[in-house]
């Protein structure tokens, strides 16, 4: 898994490439924790190049969303989720906790 953070004016875009599973979640958690503490309030997860997300990944995103909602001033959003990955999120009933966009352009455009 590769993680790249691209700062925009009002949000940070986190571009992830590869698998999000129990092996790779700890690294991604470090990045997200740092961005929640020091970054902008809107976090766009660019999932265009993500091939796989296990429940370990969903729990990381849930944990991050909980922190934003607790603080009351931020949100984690998804962009470019593959249909098969989005389907597994829907199956576990967690899709309502996230706003999703078809592309990074539309997600960032909605914020900026």
């Amino acid at each position: 898994m590769d993680v790249q953070v691209i700062p925009y004016k009002r949000c940070d875009v986190v571009k992830i490439t590869g698998r999000i599973d129990s092996e790779t979640v700890p690294n991604l958690r470090e990045t997200l924790t740092m961005l929640v503490d020091t970054g902008k309030n809107q976090l766009v997860m660019d999932m265009t190049e993500v091939t796989f997300v296990s429940s370990a990944g969903w729990w990381l995103f849930i944990d991050t969303q909980k922190i934003y909602k607790r603080n009351g001033n931020g949100e984690l959003l998804f962009a470019g989720l593959a249909q098969r990955i989005r389907h597994s999120l829907e199956l576990v009933g967690m899709d309502d906790f996230f706003t999703t966009f078809d592309s990074v352009t539309s997600a960032v455009g909605n914020i900026e």
Binding site: S55, W58, W59, I62, Q65, K66, K69, R70, V92, M94, F97
Partner: peptide, 11 residues
Amino acid sequence: PLEEIQPRGIG
């Protein structure tokens, strides 16, 4: 609600 969900049993 988001705050109340727990990870147990999802796998």
